[in-house]
């Protein structure tokens, strides 16, 4: 039987929404406060959901310790207490939470066994969140 296992993590990081494709005025008009020159930060909640058969020996879809290890190595250590704009992934990509969510999905999909990753959800604040499932 297919079940889903989800785990929430938090990362604190700063970012600035800005693109060189737009003029200074257009950046301000598009991104508002998020375009302030020195950036700002969030406590992001990252929810990772994996899907799969429940292993009859362990009763698990995935061992929590295995998932923690992967997420810590690829996400927490890389992005926690960092400036997202300075990460190579965002060298040519605005670090909106949409883009962050998609990049996290891609990093984790490659590290987890095939077909396991169901969804990544990133909550930027209590009132907005983004999900990626492909």
């Amino acid at each position: 039987m297919i079940a889903y296992f989800g785990r929430r993590y938090t990362i604190s990081a700063s970012h600035r929404l800005h693109t060189d494709e737009l003029s200074a005025e257009e950046n301000r008009a598009t991104y508002g406060k998020c375009n302030n020159p020195h950036g700002h930060g969030h406590n992001y909640a990252v929810e990772v959901v994996v899907a799969g058969e429940v292993d009859p020996e362990t009763g698990m879809v995935i061992n929590l310790a295995t998932l923690d290890e992967i997420v810590h190595a690829l996400v927490i250590e890389r992005f926690d207490h960092s400036n997202l704009n300075l990460d190579p992934l965002f060298a040519n990509r605005v670090p909106t939470t949409e883009n962050l969510t998609r990049q996290l999905y891609s990093l984790l999909k490659d590290a987890l066994p095939a077909g396991k990753l169901e969804r990544v959800r990133v909550e930027e604040t209590e009132n907005n969140f983004f999900e990626c499932n492909a």
Partner: peptide, 12 residues
């Protein structure tokens, strides 16, 4: 816990 959940949707 608030950080850990599992889901079942009736899928075989």
């Amino acid at each position: 816990t608030p950080e850990i959940f599992a889901e079942f949707r009736g899928e075989a």
